[in-house]
């Protein structure tokens, strides 16, 4: 199927884009198009106006700072894979990006697009939750930053207003020594995950887990922080101990039965994948600690 007619604009400045977005017309923002265009083709999205933000300057930047790694909304998935900056500052992002679709999808798909689309099985929203990232949001009337956990509120639903745009995502740096890992289960290479888990651990001076960020995708209407697991991780000092905390993940997620998997299978996978991700994250954190 092919898109139904819409009006198209390609603003040259963010202000121009925001003005159009705030005009009250039924508008959608087009970035990489890898989620939106299928919806247009299937007539599931029927906007009157499409605002193509690809020409906007300054939204493709990758900026490391003390506060963390700031990714402009137009940074492409493929860039997350190839950027040494990203790999150094937030290795979790590079590892997760490798699992996004196929190269043809990654070449176009953007960080902001994935965050705003908020597919519950998508990798970047999950990493944003695990990293306690904040989403920079702009509208004609101003800007605000929202913690990822408050941003993703339901199935394909975010706290983004109709006149707002995702401007950037800020991923805080983990206190070192740290290690991270992503584990994903999909039926075929490149598919959306049935369930995925992202984990990052920082060790304290005593070699024990001092800080943990764990998130689960594909096990509920939105990506979820595994708070019970995170709490259980603090103070753990062995791979077995770290693995064992995965059992708590069931309390953190609320999957439902659907066409592809039962809720109980998703819970089961979340636990298995959490254990695997945590063990690898632990080993990496340990290696980082020993390298110091």
């Amino acid at each position: 199927m092919k898109p139904l007619p819409f009006r198209y604009m390609k603003p040259q400045t963010l202000d121009e884009a925001l003005e159009a977005l705030g005009s009250g017309e039924d508008a959608k923002v087009l970035a990489g198009g890898q989620s939106l265009v299928p919806l247009l083709n299937m007539h599931l999205a029927r906007p009157a106006l499409l605002i193509d933000v690809n020409a906007l300057e300054g939204l493709s930047t990758i900026e490391p700072s003390d506060a963390g790694l700031r990714l402009g909304t137009l940074v492409r998935h493929q860039t997350l894979l190839t950027s040494s900056e990203v790999r150094r500052a937030v290795p979790l992002l590079a590892e997760a990006a490798a699992l996004i679709g196929h190269e043809a999808i990654r070449a176009r798909g953007t960080v902001g697009g994935s965050i705003a689309h908020a597919d519950p099985a998508a990798e970047l929203p999950m990493v944003a939750i695990a990293k306690r990232a904040t989403i920079g949001i702009r509208s004609a009337s101003g800007s605000r930053r929202v913690p990822a956990e408050e941003f993703f509120i339901g199935y394909l639903m975010t706290s983004l207003g109709p006149d707002e745009i995702v401007e950037d995502v800020l991923f805080p740096m983990a206190p070192s020594p740290s290690g991270s890992a992503v584990e994903e289960f999909s039926e075929r290479h490149g598919d959306f995950a049935l369930v995925a888990v992202a984990a990052e651990l920082s060790l304290g001076e005593d070699g024990r887990v001092a800080r943990a960020g764990v998130a689960v995708a594909g096990a509920g209407p939105a990506p979820a922080a595994a708070r019970e697991v995170e709490a259980a991780l603090i103070g753990q000092a062995s791979p077995e101990g770290v693995r064992a905390t995965a059992k708590a993940v069931a309390a953190d997620i609320a999957p439902e039965d659907d066409l592809h998997a039962s809720a109980s299978y998703r819970k089961h996978l979340a636990e298995i994948l959490a254990a695997r991700a945590l063990e690898r994250a632990w080993q990496r954190a340990k290696a980082a600690s020993e390298a110091r």
Partner: peptide, 10 residues
């Protein structure tokens, strides 16, 4: 997306 057919990797 919902009806999977064989892909090259598997």
């Amino acid at each position: 997306m919902d009806y999977l057919v064989p892909g090259s990797a598997e």
